[in-house]
């Protein structure tokens, strides 16, 4: 299992898909860092949004970064594939 790589989630605190994604990763036993973009102060938010825009032109939540892979939305099959989970 490729669960050693860095996993990061760009999320919104109010978003149900973001919540589901975190729950899904918890169930899979995957550690991750999470940023709730809506809770950031304006300057920090701008910085993070620019970072996110660089990662994916889709600009939607959640955006999940696993190593050098970027997945937009709770795409369970794709997330499992990238993480090497059966």
């Amino acid at each position: 299992m490729n669960n050693q790589c860095d996993v990061k989630i760009y999320a919104l605190s109010t978003c149900s898909h973001c919540r589901d994604t975190k729950e899904f990763l918890n169930q899979c036993g995957i550690a991750y860092k999470s940023i709730n973009v809506d809770e950031l102060a304006p300057e920090e938010r701008k910085k993070v949004l620019m970072e996110l825009k660089e990662l994916s032109p889709e600009c939607a939540f959640p955006t999940i970064v696993i190593g050098d892979r970027v997945i937009v939305g709770l795409q369970k099959k794709e997330i499992k594939e990238v993480l090497g989970i059966k």
């Binding site: 919104l12 605190s13 109010t14 978003c15 149900s16 898909h17 973001c18 973009v37 809506d38 949004l49 939607a60 939540f61």
Partner: peptide
């Protein structure tokens, strides 16, 4: 929706920024 109403003054979609 209620959190967003309080934050922004309108009920913005909770799944969008």
């Amino acid at each position: 929706l209620l959190i967003n109403k309080k934050r922004y003054g309108y009920m913005c979609c909770p799944c969008r920024l």
